[in-house]
Design a protein around this nucleic acid. Sequence first.
RNA 1: AGAACUAUAGCUCAGUUGGUUAGAGCACCACCUUGACAUGGUGGGGGUCGGCGGUUCGAGUCCGCCUAGUUCUACCA
Length: 945
Amino acid sequence: MDKTYQPHEIERTWYDKWEQSGYFKPSGQGDAYSIMIPPPNVTGSLHMGHAFQDTIMDSLIRHQRMLGKNTLWQAGTDHAGIATQMLVERKVAAEEGKTRHDLGRDAFIDKIWEWKEESGGTITRQLRRMGSSIDWSRERFTMDEGFYKAVQEVFIRLYDDKLIYRGKRLVNWDCKLHTAISDLEVENKDQSGHLWHFRYPLADGAKTADGKDYIVVATTRPETMLGDTAVAVNPTDSRYTHLIGQYVELPLVGRRIPIIADDYVEADFGSGCVKITPAHDFNDYEVGKRHQLPMINILDPNGAILTRAEIYNTDGTANSELDDRLPENYLGLDRFDARKHIVAEFEDKGLLEKIEDHALKVPYGDRSGVVIEPLLTDQWFVAVADLAKPAIEAVENGDIQFVPKQYENMYFAWMRDLQDWCISRQLWWGHRIPAWYDDCGNVYVARTEAEAREKYKLSHDLPLNQDNDVLDTWFSSALWTFGTLGWPEETDELKTFHPSSVLVTGFDIIFFWVARMIMFTLKFTDQVPFKKVYVHGLVRDQDGQKMSKSKGNVLDPLDLIDGIELETLVSKRTGNMMQPQLAKKIENQTRKHFPEGIDAYGTDALRFTFLSLASTGRDIKFDMNRMEGYRNFCNKLWNAARYVLMNTEEQDCGVHGEAVELTLADRWIISRLQETEAQIDKHFAEYRFDLLANTLYEFVWNEYCDWYLELSKPVLWDEQASPERLRGTRRTLVRVLEAILRLAHPLMPYITEEIWQKVAPLAGKQGDTIMLQAYPQAEADKIDPQANADIEWLKAVMLAIRSIRGEMNLSPAKEIKVLLRNASIEDQRRLEETRILLNKLAKLEQIGLLAEGEEAPMSATGLVSQMEILVPMAGIIDKDAELARLQKELDKLDKEISRLDGKLSNPGFVSKAPADVVEKERAKLREMQSAAARLRDQQQRIASI
RNA sequence: AGAACUAUAGCUCAGUUGGUUAGAGCACCACCUUGACAUGGUGGGGGUCGGCGGUUCGAGUCCGCCUAGUUCUACCA
């Protein structure tokens, strides 16, 4: 083995071997355990969030596989309607100078499929590098034929159950992408804007209370005034009550619109009068419905002013009574240009009362980055009220449990205030809506046109056209757990692996995905999609900032695995930017944070880092220093293995059950191994990967390496040692290491497999891979409290001696004598048990007891409970140094003694605290007082030299 | 505006149902290349647990208020 851990050397080959051997597939034996990967976007590449999430899933799956479960980890990607369409549109524009309309729908979709074949696999290749033990034979894509069947089936059944309806509604319209998007895809940003106060002349000679012939409305969006259909006031606002039912004459347009009363209006905001534009504002839309106001749409799909307004009645039917003409000078003007012109025209006409600065939230499309326009359009909706109820109950009654539990509140809060879900998108890429229309606009929903004719008993020659729209990507993602297992067929996979065992996901998509999955899955399978939802935090950069391309703080997990040069990293981060003006800033940041570029840390260290960061918080700040620490941990494990192999390979390790003698150290490490296994088991059950990683780290480094390996040396190097003793030590070295490897394998698959291949035979284990070995289980009868206590004593003595050495500046190479004063019978027994170890490890010339009444030589002193450790320092003692050392100890003790004293002289504590707590405190006090007395004695002796 | 989460060493984080002298890693200081490992070893320094109040014999831990940060939801035209 190499002297240092070289991740590249060992990670290269194992994955292919595992995959080719079919180890990732369900074994077909044992209870089922399944995880469906949250499908990453097919356009994407693996980011830190994925890598984090995948590490957790892989650890769970590998753990369960080793526990003998029939495990299925199924992966796939979603087609990401908007993102993919945009990407390919840009590509086609760049390469061929064509728009998708030039190509036509079918040809464009062919382009997308071509692109998907070429580069859609990026993320799955990266998943492999992470060591993810996914059953690739079951990889799914949401646009697969089979999956589309499930999507159609769901749509049709929901429609037939009247849970899907079509209607003209106000939706969030993206003027750039020309499609509706859901509330969840809208980002509201704070902006400073203006509040324009306009005068609306009163019609029919009406006057306000103070005698004016106009009222003032305020708006942040002047351009929408062309579509106003009322002015609203609060019914209790005495300034305006006499005007309710009167009319104003809408400036620029000349339309007569009523003054109505509605509680929505707050009298003390602005002028107390609100213009109502039902076709262009969600609040106004509601007001309009309450007052049966017509809806006047003035914008085209680009957000430009229409030549003729589209006017609808409250029920969505076309209104032909009202005048649909709009002022000609605005025709075709973009909404923001129109705004300027309209304001100017109000000013010209003397109708602009004032302009105020105003802070407001502006909705932006999270994909397109343009301002979202509420627009009246025909869309398909899922009526969610009936679906939500069982979905809420499933969490309430514990069929689905969130970990950590607090996220259930987030889920409930959203589910209890649910709006109908707009599922149609005006895109080409996606699942086309299985609905056909005749020329009269009647709707027929079926799998195919032929089926529609049959289902609705239509004649052959009735012309039918399929709906042009596609379904929201999240509609299909909602079927992920059962759609990927072959539903609506009743497949064996569906029976075996559904519901899935756990969903691992970030809290940011609880609404988008988790909630909708629960609703749909319950509706169609009468099963929950998963029994647990493990919600993890989001990976952030070293400053706690969200990682994003535009901030330039993204890290590619593969760069952490393989390493990257500074220059390459800089150009990677600043290349192909949406906002090139930020490039310089990003470059500087990058040079500051990674002056040397990034080292190669390997997959195992990266995984271990992710796991150790997976605590219950919402933010996971990624810390390169921590990863370096865990890379070092890999090296530690590697070198421990080297040591073990050097001492066991081609030696008698008792593989065939030969007689062995187990030393105290052997019994101790075996005992501690059981306790560690039990701890790890608990942490897995509670999804506390941080504690799990820590438990393993501690055991490997602080117990196995720091102590046990050291304790094994005096045995292995003792030429007098019996064969049984040697065999026992070798067997323990190898067996404990082998168990460590299995314990660690779900977290660090590569290094453990690599080492295990060499160690397993020496431990009497057979098998081609560690992946399929049994996960270590604690055996209670191997826990040995006596051995634990004895080794703790040994450690305490060693630490006391080392501390004296360290502080008295005694060279570690110098052999010293040690005397024990006031050693109990138990201390004496332990001394005999460990004498050889102490001599060797503490570099002692000798260690012995100071007889009762015997005068001690000048010594530095340490305490192990009541026993004094004396290191005679005749001639070389530094009086002041030793006095200072003793004083420091004493100060610490005295502080604690007075604290305990105070506690115990408090009558409240003595009478009310449980007796055992009081007794414990008393014992502690006694011990400390006596320790302090010993140190004071010693202090006097030294002082009197 | 409402809600949630977070606040513990210079940094990144643990700290179970309240009860050892509040821990780890990194960083820092000193010493050490010893036969697994300098990606290492040994010793050491460093914290009023965000602030104020309360409950309790006892609070990092429970409750209230405040401050700061993050996020979500809803928004007044």
